[in-house]
Design a protein around this nucleic acid. Structure first.
Lengths: 258, 258
DNA sequence: CGATATTTTGACATACCTCAATGGCGGTGG
DNA sequence: CCACCGCCATTGAGGTATGTCAAAATATCG
């Protein structure tokens, strides 16, 4: 388990995106909005569709799934959240969510009352623009997911999600180009890709045979990152990474004419 | 063609959602942000992925598609915009878009410079929260699209999109429970649903045979709205409609215990 | 009224799903 | 430390929804 360098609960928020635009006083103001820190066990649904919300949740440690379920018990993932994500900030302007939030691993979360956000709205327009920006990152990822599920075959689809998770974890210091801790079951992965667990299993077998990635024992090993990016036709423009974050690893090299 | 009652270019913005929260002075302030009105011909791409943006676009009349294209020329729709939608307001916090914007019909659009939005940020926090809200509606629709494409069969999938468009057009006065003008080709519809045009054609045939909807000559006739909602398992919670808008037609009746 | 885009139909291919059984790993308690 | 139990991963056989390719019919536009 990697230790966070800074003491701040918000230390990973917007890391690798527009964090440099966060002035120290703004960061302090945001940090001060976190009135409580809680630990949730794995596989716990803590926000349900339609429930009125008075708090938003900053994810400090752990993984969270956003999902919608059918009456027949089928589940479609609509997002995956990793440390640094302001999981349900959109609950503040919306008032309730259209989907559920469930922990995948045990999680540490910070609670931010909506009244505090209203104070920021009035007093800190520049910070608010960054908060707004962070909710739009989710929307951009949603669009990529629509594209992925709508037009890509199963194997590149899974590969693409792995590329996305790698890029997002890398910028918050939780992945290297060699791999990362990976708590998703094949069931979870399938739910995020619109696939059954059985077919997800077969896809992972082909990705391993192709020498791209290997998933085992809650760990994902990247065998060939450029090959994986090619196979998935991964272009990280939609993640709105800072230039620095893109140069630090193979992420985004393709766009720079490699 | 329906005539807009009010003279305001923004008259349909947030109509049926939280428009009542827009105070008259806020509406005026927003209207004053529109520095230019233009007409675009049908089938014109006017914003491309990655291009730096200095304006956002309010759609006054016409239909617009948001989409991502593959290298091989396949297209996946990631959103459809109808009058009243602030099409690329998210370009303001993001700086550029991750997708393209293309007109489907000829369109009237209002241009809003980002500097004007920055002034609103500083001076009108309450209005900004409503603008933020409106961008999150897109995100909520994206999530529903992920669900639709990931877990529903082709026929309910198309039916669900039709339900969504009906609900959205109804609240801005462009649809009745009998139907609405429908400029999408079967190709367009397929692109929005992750289907081929051939299969979309077959799906529309079955929806007609089931007595649900009939699409012909740029017009969509609803034959059985409750039946359509049932078939699509349509629940409009994700559209964040005002209570009034939900009571005015069959939209949302199901949620009220019908 | 001709040209072009769109819709419709058919035959065939295939990617993914379903159901079902087996195998392996990890945690828990004796 | 070992044995058990439950979850998760893996494999197989067979079905089906949707895609592909191609041609004909029909609408739309200039």
């Amino acid at each position: 388990m990697v230790t966070v360098a800074s003491e701040l609960l918000t230390s990973r928020f917007l890391m690798g995106r527009r964090r440099r635009q966060l002035r120290p006083d703004e960061l302090q103001a945001l940090e001060a909005c976190i009135v409580d820190v809680r630990t949730l066990p794995a596989r716990t649904t803590f926000v349900t569709r339609g429930e009125p919300l008075a708090f938003s949740t900053l994810l400090i440690e752990g993984w969270i799934s956003r999902h919608r379920d059918t009456a027949e018990g089928q589940r479609q993932g609509v997002g995956l959240q990793v440390p640094g994500d302001f999981v349900d900030l959109h609950g503040y302007p919306l008032g309730y969510l259209d989907h559920d939030l469930t922990t995948i691993t045990a999680c540490r979360i910070g609670l931010v009352p909506h009244e505090r956000l209203s104070i920021l709205m009035a007093e800190r327009p520049h910070l608010v623009k960054l908060l707004w920006f962070s909710t739009l990152l989710d929307a951009a990822m949603h669009r990529e997911w629509i594209f992925r599920i709508g037009r890509m075959g199963a194997a590149p689809r899974v590969a693409h999600l792995i590329c996305e998770l790698h890029a997002r974890l890398a910028i918050v210091g939780l992945a290297t180009d060699a791999g990362f801790d990976f708590p998703l079951t094949q069931q979870d992965l399938g739910e995020a890709c619109g696939l059954t667990n059985v077919h997800t299993n077969r896809v992972l077998a082909t990705l391993r045979k192709r020498g791209l990635v290997s998933v085992a024992r809650r760990r994902l090993d990247i065998l060939d990152l450029p090959g994986l990016h090619d196979f998935a036709e991964f272009d990280p423009d939609y993640l709105f990474l800072e230039d620095d974050a893109r140069r630090h690893s193979a992420i985004g090299r393709r766009a720079e004419g490699g």
